[in-house]
Amino acid sequence: MKANGASPAVMAGRRKSQRHRNLAFSAMAFPAVLALILFEYVPLSGLVLAFKNYNNVDGIFGSPWNGLDNFKFFVESSDMAIVLRNTIGYSLCIMLLLNLLGGMIIALLLYEVRSRFANRLYQTAMLLPDFLSWVSISFIAFLLLNPESGIMNQLLTTLGLRSIEWYNEAGYWPFIIVGFQLWKAVGMSGLYYYAALLNTDTQLFEAASLDGAGKLRQIWHISVPQLLPMASIVLITQMGAVLSTSFDMFYNLPMNTGALQSTTNVLSTHIVRGLQSGQIGSTAAIGLFQSVVGTILFLTTNAIIRKLSPAKAMF
């Protein structure tokens, strides 16, 4: 216990004031704990809505119970299969391309840029889109995809191809969505891995290059292993969020267009649209399913990683 490295005389004095100290600590902890209780724990009581036929007059606790009816609707609804397919497909694809591969590749390449000026410049440029809201990014997408004046259709017609009604053809949207997600967040993802790379012992590279190892072999054998602890934390948290895709992106990027919903509707947008049309019970049931699956996936992934390599697990 390094933190108690005080002399015995001080310790005796401290025991007397221990209660005062704990009182002070409790007072300092109080506001955050209160917020945690009010806004994280109290809302858990609202989960009863998943088992109720909610109406505004009777309220949360007065509305009649309806057993598992809300979940039945969720299994029988024809939209649900598509929504789940979209949610899981996008999540896994984005996890792989953005959170794992994209971030690692950016970090490995950035690590090779030794010029401080260039390194800074590249970092700054790559980070900028991550601080733009999805609403602003949907304006940017509209610049590219607007059927009349958009830049994509300008390019297509210059090349002699037919222009495309982007906001009417759902088939293109998986690429558009993954593309914009990469554009927005790959810089930040890369920077996290880059921070992990900075701890590498540079003597390893010198030794390897004396042994005749080329650049790529050095990267593979020295840098990549350095990234794995970060990658496993990313994997655990992202697996826990597989069903919790960004609402802002999936709502704003396709501009909430009905014609695109077959490829852009995911659980988060489905729930908000359900709420807007007043379906409290069934959307609460979907949300409960989302949370439970998330927690299970998070804990399972963590357990698997702990088994494979205990040091890389989160806990």
Partner: peptide
């Protein structure tokens, strides 16, 4: 408590209903 809130959250609908009806 902190870890609990990270592992599991109430979700949008219960939060929304509590926030509007109770708070």
């Amino acid at each position: 408590m902190l870890i609990g809130s990270m592992l599991f959250n109430a979700g949008l609908i219960p939060t929304f209903v509590i926030n509007t009806r109770v708070y």
